[in-house]
Simulated assay, not measured.
Amino acid sequence: MNSDPISRIDFPMQFLTRLKLLITVLILSFALFRQETVGEDTSQLSTGFSLKYIVIDPGHGGRDPGCVSQSGVKEKDITLSVSRKLAEVLRQKNEYEVFLTRADDRFMSLRQRVAFANQESFPPNQSIFLSLHCNSFKDQRIHGMESFKFDLDATDELAAELVERENAQESVDKFDFMIINLRKRGNEKYTEQVARILQKLLVKQLGVKNRNLHASRNAGVRGAPFYVLAWTKMPSVLLELGFISNDAERKKMTEEKYQDRIASALAKGIKKFDQQLPE
């Protein structure tokens, strides 16, 4: 009989290591099996990326007002107005085909937004998805802009609270999100690139606080498990244009000229992203 205490310790450790390996293999196998219904079409993205289609998603709408200030300012109105302005600027340049998930004050579920973006007419290696939102937080001093890509974990308390609020319409399967996280690798570099460019231009041209700095593990692009970022096949970014809960920022976001500046900065950022793509 072997009474060596080290052997008795090694056995459970080896068992746990092998169990973890088995679970990883099963997850990867299941991800491949569910390729048609979950995550990213990496085969298309592996052929390169050429921007032709832009899907703009004005957050909330209809019976879902989003964040609402004490004075009655609604997130859904700001996001729709900025989205329309951005679409107009891009269409005037006639370089891309531009689509809105909603063009008026109507309710769209998160599932419907994803289904719109995942149409066959928007190939993942030729399209980007931009979801526009306004933020809110209990501390009214908080202000600034943020950009998000999909990640399993929120970067901080504020991001976690935001995810809970934005994902409230749909049930979230953590296991599916684990699979998506593995399969999103195909478009991750494009997502990060467009998010960084848009964030940088918005901050520079609008003179606002960059809330991505020191709040992200990934060089300026924050991560969070937003439903619309998880399930869209194309490179997808969620932009928080400012805090409705902050008096000064809310006032600016309701002004036509400021919304025009946001749209202009976003359009320039999209063009810059396109110009940096390898030919």
Rank of each mutant, 00 (worst) to 15 (best):
S7G: 10
S7C: 11
F11T: 14
M13G: 11
Q14P: 02
L16P: 01
L19W: 15
K20T: 13
L21I: 09
L32Y: 11
E40I: 12
D41Q: 03
T42S: 09
F49W: 07
V55Q: 05
V55N: 07
G61L: 07
G62Q: 09
D64E: 06
D64P: 03
P65C: 06
P65D: 02
P65E: 00
G66Y: 04
C67D: 08
V68D: 01
Q70K: 13
S71W: 10
S71N: 14
L80N: 11
L80V: 01
L80K: 12
V82I: 13
A87N: 05
A87M: 14
L90N: 00
R91I: 06
Q92I: 09
Y96T: 04
Y96Q: 09
V98F: 01
V98W: 00
V98T: 00
F99L: 11
R106C: 05
F107S: 06
L110T: 02
V114C: 05
A117Y: 05
F122S: 04
P123G: 01
P123F: 12
P124G: 02
F129S: 07
S131T: 00
H133V: 00
D139E: 08
H143D: 05
G144D: 04
L162F: 12
N167H: 04
S171Q: 10
N181I: 08
R183F: 05
R183N: 10
R183K: 13
R183A: 09
Y190S: 04
T191R: 06
A195P: 02
R196H: 07
L198Y: 01
L198E: 10
L198K: 08
L198W: 08
L206H: 08
V208S: 01
K209I: 06
R211S: 07
L213K: 15
R217S: 14
R222E: 04
G223W: 11
P225N: 12
Y227D: 05
W231Y: 15
P235E: 05
L239V: 02
L239R: 06
E240L: 06
E240S: 00
G242D: 06
E249I: 01
T254M: 07
T254I: 15
E255S: 14
E256I: 05
D260F: 05
R261F: 08
R261K: 15
S264F: 15
S264L: 15
G269H: 07
K272H: 12
F273T: 00
D274W: 11
D274V: 02
Q276Y: 05
